[in-house]
Structure formats: C-alpha cells, structure tokens
C-alpha cells in the first residue's frame, strides 16, 4: 500500500503541530511516518459500513458538576512553574498581531 508522505508534507504537519523540524529530521520522520502509515493502512481493508464510531467506552452520558465555586491558586502558585513572568502575568515573546 502507498501513502502520500513527502518532505513537504512532513514540514506542513510539523507547522500544524508547532514543532521545529530540521531538514535532517524531516527526512527521518518522513520515512518513519511512511512506514507506520503503511502498517496502519491495513484497516482500510475492513468493511466498517454501518458501524457507529466509539470514542468513549465507559457508556457514561450527561456527566456534569454543579455550578459551585471552589478556591483558585494564589498568583504565586499559578506562576510557580516558570521564571518568565512579569508583574503577575506570564510573559512570552511578542506574538504577531497588527
């Protein structure tokens, strides 16, 4: 079976996935992805007509919590995982806008 994995496609997917991929990595990845796809493409042979998809095996439905307020973290706790913060805000490089 064939698939349509190309270096360009790998780069496009990496962009979607917010991953930086070097040219070298793109090459290896395209081979790995291609091998994996060839393997999993076997399922295309199975007839699944009329079968409902299962995304949850618990059989649970309508699971809600009541609208009650519980305590939040302190600002210090919220920011405890990173060094990059400023006056109580998380800080990142400027995002492109305008």
């Amino acid at each position: 079976m064939t698939n349509d994995i190309t270096i360009e496609k790998v780069k496009y997917i990496a962009k979607l996935a917010n991953l930086y991929i070097s040219d070298e990595e793109a090459k290896t990845l395209s081979k790995d992805l291609s091998d994996t796809l060839d393997f999993i493409n076997k399922i295309k042979l199975l007839n699944t007509k009329g079968l409902k998809p299962t995304s949850n095996v618990t059989g649970l439905e309508n699971v809600f919590r009541e609208d009650k307020v519980s305590s939040s973290l302190t600002q210090e706790q919220a920011l405890s995982g990173v060094s990059n913060h400023y006056k109580g805000y998380f800080k990142v490089k400027a995002v492109l806008e305008e």
């Binding site: 079968l51 998809p53 299962t54 095996v57």
Partner: peptide
C-alpha cells in the same frame, strides 16, 4: 479514512 475508521473498528472490537 483513519481516525473515524479506527473508531468504527473500535466498536467492532468492543
């Protein structure tokens, strides 16, 4: 072809 199909076969296995 992939995700939905996999979920359908999941039903079959269940």
């Amino acid at each position: 072809a992939l995700y939905l199909k996999a979920q359908q076969i999941r039903t079959m296995i269940v």
